[in-house]
Design a protein around this nucleic acid. Structure first.
Length: 124
DNA sequence: AGCTTGACATGAT
DNA sequence: AATCATGCCAAGC
């Protein structure tokens, strides 16, 4: 059970806020290559009251953690909203394409078929 | 010590 | 159907 989930159930007295950043990273790390997920999906899976925006904020710190495939997280429309935060404007797209995901005009082609929803794919 | 601003999402208009 | 408005919470200013 994640730290956030424990907190929600009252199993933890307080939640150091950085911790749900870790939860987010843990989920992101589990995204299979060639699949993507959304900020909202992660937020829902972790029962984050904070919502999707905080997931995005969490990802802001992901560059410190090397093993985070941040390029596999996009917004609910399949748009590469975070590409601006990669080294080059095309880095995110190139990484996705390297995994077999087609990207057209900053948007993932056939988005729904590559979508990986942790709530349904990751057994809870 | 407020006020604005987000790698978002959803409900209301 | 397509905007507009709001919730969420942390940081920057």
């Amino acid at each position: 059970m994640s730290t956030t989930q424990k907190l929600r159930k009252g199993l933890l007295p307080v939640k150091p806020m950085r911790d749900y950043f870790q939860d987010v990273y843990d989920v992101v790390r589990q995204i299979p290559a060639g699949r993507v997920t959304t900020y909202g999906a992660i937020a829902r899976y972790l029962s984050l009251r904070a919502g999707a925006r905080m997931v995005g904020w969490a990802m802001n710190g992901s560059h410190t953690q090397p093993d985070i495939p941040a390029h596999r997280v996009v917004n609910r429309l399949g748009i590469l909203s975070g590409k601006h935060f990669f080294g080059s404007p095309t880095a995110m797209q190139e990484r996705l394409e390297a995994e077999g995901i087609r990207v057209e005009n900053d948007q993932i082609v056939d988005f729904t078929s590559v979508l990986w929803d942790p709530a349904s794919e990751l057994t809870v």
